[in-house]
Design a protein around this nucleic acid. Structure first.
Lengths: 194, 194
DNA sequence: TGGAAGTTAGTAAATATTTACTAACTTTGC
DNA sequence: GCAAAGTTAGTAAATATTTACTAACTTCCA
């Protein structure tokens, strides 16, 4: 488990990232914002990478929690996919920095541990959605004349694009309504018509 | 127009980016690879940002060229969208560093000029595809019961996701075949059935 | 009273950029 | 036609700043 100060470091880090970007997250900024000296940070985390790893863990755990609760949120595969859309979007609204982190792969390029963790998270997401798509196809809810692999790519790509547009500060982006509309469009395209 | 040395700087920069990432592009690396001193670089470009701007310009121009030739490549709106898919993918295959640059927005975050140029490029892409979608709908080729805005988001999201997967070195990714399959899937979803 | 959490004062390395200068061309005015 | 003046492209050396991180000392509280 993490101590109070460790949690504070993560919280403040997320806040810095959301305003100044990942590159704005320096030990100096972090220490200043918390109100302690730079070396004091190292009493709680070995190095900067450990802090970023903790942030990614936080994100990973949120995702796993969402996946775990899926059965209680919806019954049909399509509704479950929609619940994932909404779930992620809520998480991003509460912590906009998570979006920044997720789109920061290029910055992590020369840090294998970070790179690996991001890849893990993305692979897990893909796998969950792909199995939901396959289940929906088996149940006759989702069109079966399409490989689940490609459908999954289209779904995840749409989700990411939506988040990206929202992040880019598209002022014409009305959260709840847009998420619903985009998902409805996707649903309209892939579901089997009655 | 750009001088020979300026072009060389851009070419070598692209090469460095494709192997070491944008963060590997330092004036030192660049100068070493070309075989001149660091300050000599500044004889040709004011600063590092100017070099990155030139790279983005190169990318922007490629896109505009593609958009300009669209009429000669295909006739129907759907085929034109497919030509854009293929065109971008070819550009990325020839210059993998372009993908890195396109997904490096986070790195450009505190450089308004770079940020602006990236936004411009994305907006231009969106506008072109959106107008093609609308045209396809008007001609009865693309489903009309869906707002072109959302359809565009799904198309661009799919394209980006495809490129991202390819970039992540998905070894199971067979360029030509996959691009075609993904586009076929998309087509199957959005086109009006005869 | 001893260890956890803090401070002060640094270091080493990286990085973009500036300064002062030179050699080799090119242009221009008499 | 040719020398003076200017330009281009380079160098070596130094600078300013940022960054992650460390060593050694101090405070404080259970």
């Amino acid at each position: 488990m993490s101590t109070e100060r460790q949690q504070e470091i993560i919280d403040v880090s997320l806040d810095i990232i959301s305003t100044k970007g990942i590159q704005g997250l320096t030990i100096k900024n972090l220490a200043k914002r918390i109100g302690i000296s730079e070396p004091a940070i190292y009493r709680h985390y070995d190095n900067k990478i450990s802090i970023l790893l903790a942030i990614l863990d936080y994100f990973k755990t949120s995702g796993e929690l969402l996946f775990g609760n899926l059965d209680s949120l919806a019954t049909s595969p399509l509704k479950k996919i929609e619940a994932i859309f909404q779930g992620y979007f809520n998480a991003f609204r509460q912590n906009p920095s998570l979006v920044t982190v997720i789109f920061s792969e290029e910055i992590f390029r020369n840090e294998p541990m970070l790179q690996q963790k991001i890849t893990d998270i993305m692979d897990k997401n893909s796998a969950v959605i792909k199995s939901l798509v396959a289940e929906g196809q088996a149940k006759g809810e989702i069109k079966s004349d399409i490989e689940s692999k490609y459908l999954t790519l289209i779904i995840i790509g749409s989700l990411r694009m939506m988040v990206k547009k929202w992040q880019m500060g598209d002022k014409a982006f009305n959260h709840r309504e847009e998420v619903e509309n985009i998902f409805k469009t996707l649903e309209q395209l892939i579901k089997v018509n009655a």
